[in-house]
């Protein structure tokens, strides 16, 4: 059953993140950076692809998945040429980035921060 692996792997990656934030003094932004770079490096070593095949969204939805998409794109581009190798990462992740920037901008222009929840 694929969903079991999705749940376990996805949950485990988040649990590692929680442990990092609680046990070390790493703040949330630093954890995000670490996870993206870790995903890219693991894919560079061709270790992340098997995880994606096993767990699907469990491996792609957490942030290492973003790093994985970037690295995978770069590795595919590398077969075509040097510039394609540099371009490949952004090209593969362009959809997510474009939506995150534009939709995020619209949302930010509409809403304002609230004080009440502390």
């Amino acid at each position: 059953m694929g969903y079991v692996y999705t749940f376990l792997i996805g949950g485990a990656i988040c649990a590692i993140g929680q442990l990092l934030m609680d046990a070390t003094k790493l703040t949330a932004p630093r954890v995000l950076v670490i996870f993206v770079v870790a995903g890219a490096v693991l894919q560079g070593l061709q270790l992340y692809e098997p995880l994606v095949e096993l767990a699907g969204s469990g491996a792609t939805v957490p942030l290492p998945g973003f790093g994985y998409v970037l690295a995978k794109g770069a590795m595919e581009g590398a077969r075509e040429g040097l510039l394609q190798a540099v371009m490949g990462g952004v090209k593969a992740a362009s959809g997510g980035i474009a939506v995150a920037v534009s939709w995020g901008y619209i949302v930010s222009l509409i809403f304002s921060p609230k004080s009440i929840v502390r």
Binding site: M21, T27, A28, P29, P113, K114, S115
Partner: peptide
């Protein structure tokens, strides 16, 4: 620190 609407603990 971090922004108000940031989902940190």
């Amino acid at each position: 620190r971090l922004p108000l609407e940031h989902g940190h603990q």
